[in-house]
């Protein structure tokens, strides 16, 4: 049993590496992972100079009470803060594509009948797929972790302490859970959809809903503010609609939950959310995949574009 599951997982990873669209997205993601450290470093350098210049101007004007540099106390990991946004945007979309292409591959190739005439059960097959997706995403996050770790060490000349390294590891661990949720969402729609395009667009619609619609309904934040890793959680406007919407939707707003955890791990921001909504989402969507594959009609598995 374990052998067949492992065979499916292995084949999954091999096929991902051979896919041009996946390689393209992976390249964008890893580039952004390295680039976010560079952006953080370059911005931090500039801001230091801007502060120095500001102090100069203020002293010249005879102002004596000069505020402390607000960036003096920022933790080293905060230069990676853009990564929260990149996982939230690129990572999740890439995960959808990974999950989608994983099951669509068999349906497109028309090999479902052969596969399920072998001694492998439907749930073993989907478990193999999920395992493959997990390993692929884990690999991506491990590479991103290494890139972040070394870019801080090299660019910033700062060797991470154990607690900082742990925070960075925890951040990529949380990112893995977040990306897995979207990947399994893609997998679910690839199992149940009748057309390949619908199988791709349906999870993208969910992605838009989770990433943009939910936060807007609970906090009325501008989308630009949603994408700025610096902006902290603002309270919702004080009116009935938002209070009701917030109490109902907020616990389910998994993107806000992820961003908040990410921020607190990288910036030491205290407004943290528990991890459990993310985990609950992941379990629900993974369960849906098993349910979907149970209902999956092998004899009508081939899919239209």
């Amino acid at each position: 049993m374990f052998f067949t599951i492992a065979t499916v997982s292995k084949s999954e990873i091999r096929s991902l590496i051979r896919q041009k669209t996946f390689v393209l997205m992976l390249a964008v993601f890893l580039f952004m992972a390295s680039f976010s450290a560079y952006i953080g470093w370059s911005t931090k350098n500039t801001i230091r100079s801007v502060y120095a210049q500001t102090v100069k101007e203020m002293t010249a004007q005879g102002i004596k009470e000069i505020p402390n540099n607000p960036f003096l106390s920022t933790p080293p990991l905060s230069i990676l803060k853009n990564m929260v946004v990149y996982v939230f945007l690129i990572g999740s979309l890439m995960a959808i594509i990974i999950g989608h292409s994983s099951f669509i591959r068999e349906r497109r190739a028309g090999v479902s009948k052969i596969i399920f005439s072998k001694s492998i059960g439907k749930w073993e097959f989907v478990l193999g797929k999920m395992g493959g997706i997990f390993l692929a995403l884990m690999l991506i996050n491990v590479i991103s972790f290494a890139l972040s770790f070394f870019s801080i060490t090299i660019i910033f000349s700062h060797f991470l302490s154990i607690s900082e390294a742990f925070n960075l590891l925890a951040f990529y661990g949380t990112s893995l859970v977040y990306m897995l949720f979207f990947a399994y969402l893609g997998l679910f729609f690839a199992i149940v959809s009748k057309s390949e395009s619908l199988a791709l667009l349906a999870p993208v619609m969910f992605w838009i809903f989770i990433s943009f619609v939910m936060p807007q309904l609970t906090s009325a934040l501008d989308p630009t503010a949603l994408l700025n890793p610096t902006s902290i959680q603002t309270p919702a406007p004080q009116n009935n609609f938002f209070q009701i919407a917030q109490s109902i939707i907020h616990p389910f707003s998994v993107s806000e939950s992820y961003k908040s955890i990410g921020r607190s791990l990288l910036q030491g921001d205290s407004s943290s959310y528990p991890l459990f909504p993310l985990v609950v989402y992941l379990i629900v969507v993974a369960g849906s995949c098993f349910y979907g594959v149970k209902q999956f009609n092998i004899c009508e598995a081939e899919i239209d574009q």
Binding site: T43, V50, P67, P70, T224, L227
Partner: peptide, 24 residues
């Protein structure tokens, strides 16, 4: 999303909630 976001986060004034220059 990405290009505007990079531009936005590179803005020194956007580094602190509420704005750097305002805080100064």
């Amino acid at each position: 999303l990405i290009i505007p976001q990079i531009g936005d986060t590179m803005d020194p004034d956007n580094q602190i909630p509420g704005g750097f220059f305002k805080s100064m």
